Simulated scan of single mutants.
Amino acid sequence: MSASYLAQAQRVVVKIGSALLTDAETGKLNRTWLQALVEDVARMRARGQEMLIVSSGAIALGRRALKLAPGKLKLEESQAAAAVGQIGLAHAFQEMLSAYGHSCAQILVTLEDTEERRRYLNARSTISTLLKLGAVPVINENDTVATTEIRYGDNDRLAARVASMMSADCLVLLSDVDGLYTAPPHLTGATHLPEVAEITPEIEAMAGGAASEFSRGGMKTKLAAARIATDGGARMAIANGHGLHPLKAIEDGARCTWFAAHSTPYAARKRWISGSLKSLGALVIDDGAVKALTQGRSLLPAGVATVEGIFGRGDAVSVRDKAGHEIASGLVAYSSDDARRIAGHSSHEIEELLGYSGRAEMIHRDDLVLKKG
């Protein structure tokens, strides 16, 4: 059954470790391996699945191009190496994906871009649009400007946050290990775990360290990623990606460890909006808007009668009817000042009123949670 998880997923995030992209002997990009992976991605796209790639490797590739000495790099050396490596990495993905008729988009983010709500909304909106247009986003950590993010194993967590942010239902961490074992795999008696229903203290105790020179992630960071992904509604797999066509191998039943999702991506996002965020203001809406929301539609500016409080784009706000009853809560697409300017107006008037073309919705239905009762 677990072999079918990947084939059945609607939206898949694939994280590629540095050790897979880089030839161990030459330090160059392993084009043969990457070509096989892109073939897997193209095959999955052809059957209707949305694909996102979170890629390590920029620093590893850049350090070779800059002829930096082996061993630990200084922060500024890591950033310089990333700046060089990102160009080659993006070009390789673009060249290979275009051969299958797919556009490739490079997006550079840090962990803060998936945590701070305004930047989160911008990133989610951009990536969602790329997916709707049929592109394959290739997401790299912005190591050229990051400081605290350049550390051990961060791309595993970044991939999990991207999966959660984009409501993916499957995350695959391709690495140099084939999953979680009860003890370090080289020890006698170590047993492979094909599925993990819950990350307990006993499961955490099984985690080991980093597995290779290029890998900044170890099993501990992969378990941290699993917590983020499964809480966000995605199944997650840890799989050995060293062979050619690693995604097809997973579908064909190759050994890996699957972590069970705790809910659906949709339910997890709605729970986060309704239970984890403090409302900083309120939108009072008319009867027509109340009816539209109960029918599952977005909240448009035309239905907003009054704007209360001071808030920014991406903040949580309460939605009330004119009698004062709370109807919903959600992430608003406009600051309180701009919301007041467009309240009661049609969406096509937004550009004229604000001087820029914003979102048609005051709160998109994906960012809105109706109150029970």
Rank of each mutant, 00 (worst) to 15 (best):
E204S: 14
E204D: 10
A205N: 13
A205V: 15
A205F: 07
A205K: 11
G208D: 15
G208Y: 15
A211R: 09
A211Y: 07
S215F: 03
R216H: 15
R216W: 15
G218I: 11
G218S: 12
M219L: 15
K220D: 12
K220A: 15
K222E: 14
L223C: 06
L223F: 09
A225L: 13
R227G: 00
R227C: 01
I228H: 04
D231L: 10
D231Y: 05
G233D: 03
A234Q: 06
R235C: 04
M236D: 12
A237V: 04
A237K: 01
A237M: 06
I238L: 14
A239C: 07
N240K: 01
H242R: 14
H245I: 06
H245K: 09
L247T: 07
A254G: 01
R255A: 11
C256V: 03
C256W: 06
T257P: 08
T257M: 10
T257D: 04
W258P: 06
W258S: 08
W258L: 12
F259M: 13
A260N: 13
A260Q: 15
H262P: 12
S263P: 03
P265E: 05
Y266W: 11
A268F: 01
K270T: 01
W272K: 05
I273H: 00
G275Y: 03
S276A: 02
S276H: 00
L277W: 01
S279A: 15
V284A: 05
I285Q: 02
I285G: 02
D286T: 00
D287M: 06
A289V: 07
K291I: 12
K291M: 08
T294L: 11
T294W: 13
Q295F: 02
G296H: 05
R297C: 08
S298C: 08
S298E: 06
S298R: 08
L300H: 08
P301N: 00
